[in-house]
């Protein structure tokens, strides 16, 4: 879908959203009609479940969830973000089919310009977006009291935090010393 050609305006979107969770199906239908659905898009090379478009979004999401916890060194930070995206791919590939379908709808919605712009407050496409844009999206979703959007926030915050804070390099920031060294060495002895 060419950027910004959909006609759903903010007012229309809010009206549609007032129905709460049931609107996910309607919005999903909108995505289908607009030709933006990734449901049939190819899995990205080297990944199990994410498509190339998803990966742009996931990179922004992981960096956005990390905030100032990422190391200042861009190479080190980039490696953590890349590993986060790889872990998100593993997590999502392992979901049951019904949950995967819901996540697919959500990721498709996030690629749909009217949703990204009016529900998420993000003007740039994800391929050009960064951590700050993902944080704008998360804040919009967090602050909305529509259960559809709160649910989207919960899902994205969980994916972002688990793929990030499970990584050993993040232990320096959290001061988590890791599993007890004495036990590790005893088990290896």
């Amino acid at each position: 879908m060419p950027a910004d050609t959909a006609t759903l305006d903010r007012r229309g979107f809010l009206k549609l959203s007032a129905g709460g969770a049931t609107t996910l199906a309607l919005l999903g239908a909108g995505v289908q009609l607009s030709g933006c659905s990734q449901r049939s898009a190819a899995v990205a090379n080297g990944y199990r479940w994410l498509t190339a478009s998803d990966i742009h979004f996931m990179r922004a999401l992981v960096a956005g969830v990390a905030g100032n916890a990422l190391p200042a060194d861009p190479t080190a930070a980039g490696a953590i973000v890349d590993e986060g995206v790889r872990r998100a791919d593993i997590e999502l590939a392992a979901l049951g089919a019904p949950a995967q379908q819901e996540v697919r709808k959500l990721l498709d919605l996030l690629q749909w310009t009217p949703f990204r712009r009016f529900a998420g407050g993000v003007t740039r496409p994800w391929a050009e977006a960064g951590a700050a844009d993902a944080q704008t999206l998360l804040k919009h979703l967090h602050d909305s009291h529509l259960s559809l959007l709160s649910g989207a926030y919960r899902a994205l915050a969980k994916i972002g935090s688990t793929v990030l804070w499970s990584q050993t390099p993040m232990n320096a920031f959290s001061h988590y010393p890791g599993p007890p060294a004495w036990a590790i060495s005893a088990l290896e002895a």
């Binding site: 956005g64 990390a66 916890a69």
Partner: peptide
């Protein structure tokens, strides 16, 4: 349940 600098 939070994100960004607050979660950090």
């Amino acid at each position: 349940g939070n994100f960004g600098d607050a979660l950090a």
